[in-house]
Structure formats: structure tokens, C-alpha cells
Design a protein around this nucleic acid. Sequence first.
DNA 1: TACCAGGCGCGCG
DNA 2: CGCGCGCATGGT
Length: 290
Amino acid sequence: MEKTNRVQIKYNSEYFSVKDTLECGQIFRFRPFEKGYLVFFEKSVAYCYNDGDYAVIECNVEDEKRLKNFFDLDRDYESIVRSATNSGYSVLNDSARLGKGIRILNQSSEEALFSFIISQNNNIPRIKNSIEKLCEIYGEKCDSEYGEYYSFPTAEKLALAEDLTLKSAGLGYRVGYIKSVAKEIVNGFNLEELKSLPTEELKKKLISLKGVGEKVADCVSLFGFHRSDSFPVDTWIEKVYRENFGGSLTDRKKITEYFVEKFQGNSGYFQQYLFYYKRSLEKQTKNTEK
DNA sequence: TACCAGGCGCGCG
DNA sequence: CGCGCGCATGGT
């Protein structure tokens, strides 16, 4: 066993909302706990919450740098948010004000890849559920001061999985994609090597995998490789594009190009503000209808 | 009951 | 190339 240290990090909460960062749809392995949330990443679990002026992260880690990197703590979100509020688009202004506490995490690229394959034609609660079951079935049981939890399965485990067992996680027709990609990885498809590629090349490699199209590749590129010159277009973003940007394109790939050309290296952050904003509005109107 | 959810693969023209 | 369809599943 390598030795771990108990670390507590306090960070100004103005640009770090634990809730918004976790619930904005970029990550699926977390759950409410006491004052905030437990977040499962790599082989650890972090307890995170906002307390007045601070966001607090508590975790046993071998290397505090990895923890800080996971939460992207060295990035200047104030300037990103300012670019959004100064963009001249009122919906982006509103979105950034709502979501200014969102940080784009630095997740494992492999976990992001499998997670967003599962995300296709699916909804977030179901995605979360399926991933949790996958972890329970194929992950490694771990112990922590917060109780037992399961790590994300390795590609090796998934490659050897039985179709029926995978199906029991509610993956539906995505079972074939998961197994195919897992086998590719076992057979040498190396995600680490992709880190040196420019975003366009990275996306091409990802799209060569079965079950990965433009949108999933954009999500993996953004959430698994922190390529902020990515702009995933799903049903929600398409709505924003039509209703708030007055767009008329229907080809999602072209919509992506439209936004990336406009927002460049801020694309991924802005996309996340817009996505979160649009979904929040929907939830709100649903709740007031009841 | 039909429609929707962080879409994609495939076959057809 | 673009287009339309089928695909698992659970929630409204």
C-alpha cells in the first residue's frame, strides 16, 4: 500500500460551486452526502461541500496535486466567466451568471469514454444509474471512511463481460458498443497516446470507435481530455441554438462548428453554462406546473 | 399511448 | 455524401 495523507483544501466559492460542478452533467459518479457530496474519482473518494465563502474538499490522497488537478483548481474561471458575460449574447450572460461556479473537471479519459457512450439517447438519471450498477458488478470494492464503494470497471473487465450481465445494468443496445470499445482498448487502442494530438485528430480517433459519433466524441474530448475547443451539441444545446441564437442549421456537426468558430478555446466552458441553464429552466417550469 | 432523453450505425438513393 | 429508420429502457 502506498501511503496517503488526509488533505483538506479550501477554495474561494465564488467560482467553485460543488453542486453545480457535479450536477451539470459532466460526471456521473457522485452522490449527496451530509453537507455536500461524495465524488468518486480514480481510486479515491472526495467529500466536497460549500460552506459560506469556501468550497471544501476532503480526501485521502497520495498526491495533493492530483486532487487539485481533478477539480481544475489552477484555472482562472473568473476570466472565462467574464468572457461569457461580455459576449453580447444575453442567454450566455444569463447562463454564465447561473453557472459561474461550474468547473470542468479533469476526469479519467477512459471513464469519460465509457460514460458518454452510455449517455447517448439517454437521460442523466438513467445514465447515473447504469454506471453505478456497472461499478457494482464489474468494479473493485473499496473501503473508505464513508463506507464501501466501487471503482469504475477496467476495460479488461468490460471486455470479458457477459452480454446479459451488462444488460442488467440497463445499458440496452449500448452493450455492444461498450464491449467493442473495451476490446479495442485491451487490444492496444491507447487513450494516453491521444493526449498529444490536436483536438480534430483526437476526435477522429475517438469516432473510429463503435458507438462514438460526433457528439460523444465532443463530450469525451471536453470532459476526458479537457479540450475546451469542443462544443458538444445534443438536444438541449440544439434548443438553445434555435431559440436563443436564432439559428436555422439542423446538422449538429455544423452547429458545433458554428459555436467553436465563435467561442474558440472558451467553447467547452460556454457550452456547459448553456446546457446547465437550459436544463435548469426546464426543471423549474416542470416543478411550478405541479 | 406517444414522446423524450447529453445519438449512433447502417442501409439506401 | 445525406437521409431515415431502428435501437433498449424508464419516465412523463
